[in-house]
Write a protein that binds this DNA or RNA. Structure first.
Lengths: 270, 270
DNA sequence: GTAATAGTGTCTCTGAGACATTATCGT
DNA sequence: ACGATAATGTCTCAGAGACACTATTAC
């Protein structure tokens, strides 16, 4: 790749400082241990955020991300950042959307391509670095607004977003931040559109298995669907739907004060 | 937006010339008039291409596109290019994917955000500029390859693309160009992924109405589905599916050598 | 026994696929 | 009358929603 040589002052006028960055939505599901020995662990849908320690937005939370280096593909940059934060290589990673508004970043023009990564939290044995934290996600939504609360058991981040339908033909919305004081940049928008994308994909793909351990019970799997979709599912219906996607093993999970459950795994052959 | 000032040679080393561009897939459906007076016009799924008259890829065809200007949002740039080519303002426009590989463009690093636009060709009264041309799209596909033929009744563009499944959990494929000699850049990839996106959206949204005239018959609508999806649909099934999306008018289309058909319009109230 | 989860049976209703049938025009 | 498209009727089958029911554990 050729470097750019600036020749004279005329060229300078046209030279807008421009950078490409990538921001990554790292989603997972957290277990909250219950005091009642009979109860299953409560699950929470969660996202990994980083605390900023430099200008701009110093002290605010943001999505893990960074600049794409010269000579580096955008997806490679996303992968690099992901490995840097998690120490895991084989993580599901999908490009979401590119934010190209001129004034997103107060320093200069930064075009950011967002990615979504899904991870099974149990694989994160190493403790994550101390400027990173998992936040549980709670969303309430009506016709016109989305309210999101993120909670890491220590700090609560709330923001509110206005939805307006772009056109009737598709279900695309234009999002606008109404309230936000703890998140940097336009990251509330990225979070909301990522959640929306994940919910959709849950319904028509097997994407959920990217955030599951190798072996799991059907109840656990159902719980993951439920916390992400934000609604209860009926057992028989759920089991019918996922029946041909999973495979029984001979193992059982015992120890709860109730009937043991069969461990399943994702069916990779068909 | 602040302009960038280069201070010394050290900075120059880090200054990679980088640009943002946008490429637009403008899809439509063309009518081919039949000689048999009884027959309906045959429809073709089509895409608008531009002939390059400068380096690089001079003489090859490419998607309409261009550089995002300093101080211009990416989506505004896409809209500007679209209006420039079509003279129509209210066109459906949707961001598709951002191509961020380092060596996409031989001149320098160019990150390109692709968009898909859908249009009713009847609205293009003005003749389009003479470096633009509509190409009919024909796709054949098997497990591992996609063959695309584009035809503007004068020139035929063929290319072949290899598909490899990225992971089993979702239906995401990695595309690689196997054969291509008439299209510039990585535009075969953009075309293929755009077609795929449109096919998907046809099935679960009302996106098709963005390429229909205000009034249309159900047979015409069905034909549009058929040419894009590349398969025949059964009449009763089709009519059931779209029944609640359209509204009867009092107008009829007469003149063919057969039973007249009722004109419908997209139902905007519910 | 009790409280919890695990897992299944089955009825109903909806909706898609498939095929057949009737309707209506221009020549 | 003929050849084309327009529009509908209806049978069957698969699948989702809903509710009820049985099974099995730790304490």
């Amino acid at each position: 790749m050729k470097k750019y040589k600036i020749k004279d002052d005329n060229d300078l006028k046209e030279c807008e400082k421009l950078s490409i960055s990538t921001d990554i939505l790292i989603f997972s599901v957290s277990d909250e241990i219950q005091s009642n020995y009979r109860k299953l662990n409560k699950k929470h849908f969660s996202v990994l955020l980083a605390k900023r320690d430099t200008y701009p937005f110093e002290g605010k939370w943001c999505l893990p991300g960074g600049f794409v280096k010269p000579g580096e593909d955008i997806e490679d940059a996303a992968r690099r950042i992901l490995v840097d934060k998690t120490n895991i290589h084989d993580i599901y990673l999908e490009q979401l959307y590119t934010y190209g508004e001129v004034n997103r970043d107060p320093r200069m023009r930064v075009v950011s391509t967002s990615y979504m990564a899904l991870i099974d939290k149990n694989r994160l044995n190493d403790k994550i670095s101390n400027n990173l934290s998992w936040f549980n996600i709670a969303v309430t939504e009506d016709e016109k607004t989305i309210n999101v609360t993120l909670d890491n058991n220590n700090e609560e981040i709330k923001f509110k977003i206005a939805k307006t339908l772009k056109e009737k033909t598709t279900d695309r919305y234009k999002y606008k931040i109404l309230e936000n004081d703890k998140l940097a940049f336009d990251h509330p928008l990225i979070i909301v559109s990522g959640i929306s994308r994940l919910k959709n994909k849950l319904e028509y793909t097997d994407i959920v298995f990217n955030m599951m351990p190798k072996y799991f019970t059907l109840s656990e799997l159902q719980q993951v669907y439920e916390v992400i979709l934000g609604k209860k599912l009926l057992d028989p219906a759920f089991r019918r739907i996922i029946a041909n996607k999973v495979e029984k093993t001979n193992e059982m999970r015992t120890g709860g004060g109730h009937r043991p459950s069969i461990l399943y795994k994702y069916k990779t052959t068909n």
